[in-house]
């Protein structure tokens, strides 16, 4: 800008959607868009993906007052990932939708008691560029992490198993990511659908350790432990836990549980200097 004359106004940036989540996992998306009356319209959900693109189209129903509403029922399958939301009018190019007031209170402390087959979770959120996106997971069975307790050189994890039942020999694995080493196995205490497991840090060497539950031991499936049942789209910066130092099988290390970008639970272990008294 070479003169003192102010720059032009910032233009308004696109249609705005108001999302409301229900406790069953469905989401309704509403737009105030009088200009769309009597036009063919739908919402297009497009998954962030490097290769093949997934797309889902949701019809928009006209409501009184120039509003449009789309439903994303729990029965609609969305692959795990981040889905951008677009509005499509007639044959025009899809335009990205902006997030409005998202009412996600039903997602908070979600119980999700009855999960038949897959657990489906959708959390609308403002994507990095400021547009509306939906994070989706569908998992069955699923191991939901609850409270974590950091003790003297160990992590005690409380959780709940959804979409499956515990067998006789349930255990929990800590898998070193990117390594063919056999995982560290710890025992699991089970009470109904709830479980508790303690991971001793002294058994873990430097690296990232992914936690998986085996509800029926070696015979059955491996279920990634994660945290999905609330309104927080990205757990990593919100759920933070203390790190602890321990000297174990791999020398002195510092370990800290954390949630990955996919909201799964892992333990980060780093080698550190021996502590001097």
């Amino acid at each position: 800008m070479s003169t003192a004359s102010p720059a032009p106004s910032v233009p308004s940036a696109g249609p705005r959607a108001f999302c409301a989540a229900d406790a069953d996992g469905g989401v309704s998306i509403e737009l105030a868009l009088p200009e769309a009356a009597d036009r063919r319209s739908c919402l297009l959900l497009r998954r962030h993906a490097k290769q093949a693109q997934d797309e889902v189209r949701l019809p928009l129903a006209e409501l009184p007052g120039g509003r449009l509403r789309a439903e994303l029922p729990v029965g609609t399958a969305l692959r795990e990932g981040r889905w951008d939301v677009y509005l499509v009018l007639d044959d025009e190019e899809p335009v990205r939708v902006l997030p409005g007031m998202n009412d996600l209170r039903a997602l908070l402390d979600r119980e999700a008691h009855k999960v038949e087959g897959k657990l489906r979770v959708r959390i609308p959120y403002p994507a990095k560029e400021g547009h509306l996106a939906v994070r989706a997971w569908q998992r069955g069975p699923h191991a939901e992490a609850g409270e974590l307790h950091i003790g003297e050189g160990r992590l005690t994890l409380q959780g709940r198993l959804l979409g499956a039942e515990f067998g006789e020999e349930a255990d929990l694995l800590a898998d070193l990511r990117g390594s063919a080493e056999p995982p560290v196995t710890v025992e699991v205490k089970v009470s109904g659908d709830e479980f508790t497991a303690t991971v001793p840090y002294r058994k873990l060497g430097p690296g990232l350790w992914d936690l998986r539950l085996r509800p029926s031991g070696a015979q059955g499936p491996r279920v990634r432990v994660g945290r999905l049942l609330d309104d927080v789209a990205d757990k990593k910066p919100v759920f933070r836990y203390p790190s602890s130092r321990v000297t174990g099988e791999y020398g002195p290390v510092e370990a800290e549980p954390y949630y990955t970008v996919d909201n799964d639970l892992s333990v980060k272990v780093q080698a550190c200097e021996e502590e001097t008294a």
């Binding site: 800008m1 003192a4 102010p6 720059a7 032009p8 106004s9 910032v10 233009p11 308004s12 940036a13 705005r16 902006l98 400021g130």
Partner: peptide, 22 residues
């Protein structure tokens, strides 16, 4: 000052916003 693309708290531009220094 303007330090972002859009005003976060008035994103729909009902009131014109202009800036003096980018």
């Amino acid at each position: 000052f303007r330090n972002r693309e859009r005003p976060l708290l008035a994103p729909d531009g009902n009131v014109p916003v202009r800036y003096l220094v980018d």
